[in-house]
Design a protein around this nucleic acid. Structure first.
Length: 153
DNA sequence: GCCAACGTTGGC
DNA sequence: GCCAACGTTGGC
């Protein structure tokens, strides 16, 4: 089992949107970054646990926990000219972009702020606190996942 | 394949 | 709105 952190902008789609339809799964689509794509296509597996991270908003930080319920499959928005995620270079034979479905597990009592995470001496490997912090899908190692989960709960 | 120019992300 | 830190594009 692997652990991940997915970013989202809550003004567009946040943890409350995940929560509003608890019986359904939500597609994590629109990821258009190759490194993140590789994770979604090859490494994110059913049953993996995912921190939901809110970015570009008032309360920046980890807002809750979700579980992967459908692992990597082709993101069809890449073929749709009407979609803002349309990619003219993608073809049905050679799709470029993939997505997964997740289901909400838990909303944390309060958002665990980025500031707090950065101040935690145990958290050194997490992509958020390292240089290349712009990736929208990033792995979290088990040790740091456990520490963050405990701190957030 | 190099790299300058340009675009995007995302915290502040 | 600023700007650092990337990622992507395209000419050569």
């Amino acid at each position: 089992m692997n652990y991940w952190l997915f970013k989202t902008e809550p003004d567009a789609f946040g943890i409350d949107d995940l929560a509003s339809r608890p019986e359904q799964t939500e597609p994590w689509d629109g990821v258009r970054n190759y490194q993140a794509r590789n994770f979604l296509r090859d490494e994110v597996k059913s049953g993996d646990l995912v921190f939901i991270y809110h970015s570009s908003c008032k309360e920046i930080g980890i807002a809750g926990l979700a579980e992967v319920v459908q692992e990597g499959y082709v993101d069809h928005s890449q073929f749709d000219p009407q979609s803002k995620y349309y990619d003219p270079k993608a073809t049905l034979e050679k799709p470029r972009w993939y997505r997964v479905d997740v289901k909400l597990k838990q909303i944390f009592p309060r958002v665990l702020p980025l500031k707090t995470i950065k101040a935690m001496p145990e958290i050194t490997e997490l992509g958020l606190v390292k240089k290349g912090h712009r990736l929208s899908i990033m792995p979290v190692n088990k040790q740091e996942f456990d520490i963050l989960l405990q701190r957030a709960s």
